[in-house]
Design a protein around this nucleic acid. Structure first.
Lengths: 243, 243
DNA sequence: GGCGCTATTGGGGAAAACCCGTAGTTGAAT
DNA sequence: ATTCAACTACGGGTTTTCCCCAATAGCGCC
């Protein structure tokens, strides 16, 4: 927690020392960012890779927040969907106007929210993913200009917000200790290389039952239902490498 | 397999400049960025888990590049190691001056490279990790000032470079990859989400035997011996996403 | 029309994985 | 000194996957 703030010094617009400690203050921080960048609304959504749940802080009005949640739009929101698969910022103008897009944004319009915006994905080392979105109701020309001006700054804000949220999120704390033992990692690694439990037992010169125990333990630690899921999760978290 | 795995695994380091295509563009781009931001050197290192290869692209002089590679410093480089575990930019000033640090930077000094710099981690959705580092030989006071000014911009550059590298690498891999059918991808995707064949059969409203056929076909196309391996491979290739 | 490819649906049986335990040893930490 | 996590191993029983086989339907292509 203390090894981050000073890196940004005093010159930076968004010094981490200004970042709120309590999660209740995240919204206020976002309002602050919104005003500084001159956008309509700003929203952060963090995705927990364990159960796929999404949590976030937004400056949207309460009506839209409630509607969005009640409709389960986080499951189909194309901006989140694309951000989850992208490295670079996602310009909503480049998204397909497919059925999911229309379903979300047709409703959004009724709540005063336009389909003009950006989503910036950010990832941490534990498979944690987040996205910072901004919306604007400027004219297209003005928005394009503003977009270029704020993009770089928003990138930085996104990283800082995600960092803070993940650090204060209890669920993610479980993931932040992916202390897979050496044997568990070995077993997973060989499984990812296509070896059976018996193969691995021979390779490691241990019993196949022991290999099974290690894989079972790895599944539990990664909250995975199957070994295949554990392998995928471990790869996406950088714990092992594809074989 | 080490107790403390090397940063990018057991793989060899190789230089983007050794690659025929686009290397000139990357090189020019980095030199360009270096001059624009007023730093001494810029280095990008990234790993694509598709083949576990490491991509490096730097503005360091050839002597240091050769020395760094020949000593295998990418395995112990503390700047990479810390960046691998961090979301936010890593200030080298805050790193422990441990044995690994001294081993790398004592040598670096002989090649005119200071232990004053920043490393910005970047992550993509497939477990791919990269880091953009900059060095400076300014006075500490001047460097602290410059650091605050360039940090936000470098964040953006880092994302951009990583995106370009991974994208081109994924693309080249995709060209050699047999295309999986829609059903095969669906089956793999749900398997990655921890579902059994019967679960998937229910979800897709097809027979569990059909699901099995799709998974088998996917395994063959991916040259995978087990479904777990196929899942890992598909994730690392970007065909599916971790569930 | 034939040809090749893919998606779909099965059966039977072998192999592997998985779940529920118990239990001894080691080494590190409190 | 005791707790605790990791590693090791085994048993019995269940579930799932995997591999052999065959078959129908749809699709574009020459």
């Amino acid at each position: 927690m203390d090894n981050l703030p000073s890196i940004f010094g005093q010159h930076d617009l968004f010094d981490l020392e200004d970042l709120p400690e309590a999660s209740d203050d995240f919204s206020r921080f976002l309002f602050n960012v919104r005003d500084r960048f001159g956008v309509d609304d700003i929203a952060y959504a963090g995705m927990n890779p364990v159960n796929g749940s999404i949590f976030g802080h937004v400056t949207y009005n309460d009506d839209w927040k409630a509607h969005y949640a009640s409709q389960g739009y986080h499951k189909i929101d194309p901006t989140l969907h694309k951000a989850r698969r992208s490295i670079a910022p996602v310009d909503w103008a480049r998204l397909d106007r497919d059925s999911n897009f229309l379903m979300v944004f047709d409703d959004a319009r009724d709540f005063g929210i336009r389909d003009q915006g950006l989503t910036i994905p950010v990832r941490g080392p534990y498979g944690d993913v987040g996205g910072l979105s901004v919306t604007s109701s400027l004219s297209q020309k003005e928005w394009n200009k503003l977009k270029g001006e704020v993009l770089v700054g928003l990138q930085s804000v996104a990283v800082h917000v995600h960092d803070m949220v993940i650090r204060s999120d209890n669920l993610s704390n479980l993931l932040r200790t992916p202390t897979l033992s050496h044997r568990e990692l070995e077993a997973l690694q060989w499984t990812s290389a296509g070896k059976s439990q018996q193969d691995i037992a021979d390779i490691l010169s241990i019993s196949n039952r022991t290999v099974e125990v290690h894989l079972r333990s790895a599944r539990h630690k990664l909250y995975a239902l199957t070994t295949a899921q554990a392998v995928g999760r471990a790869i996406s978290m950088g714990l092992i490498y594809p074989g």
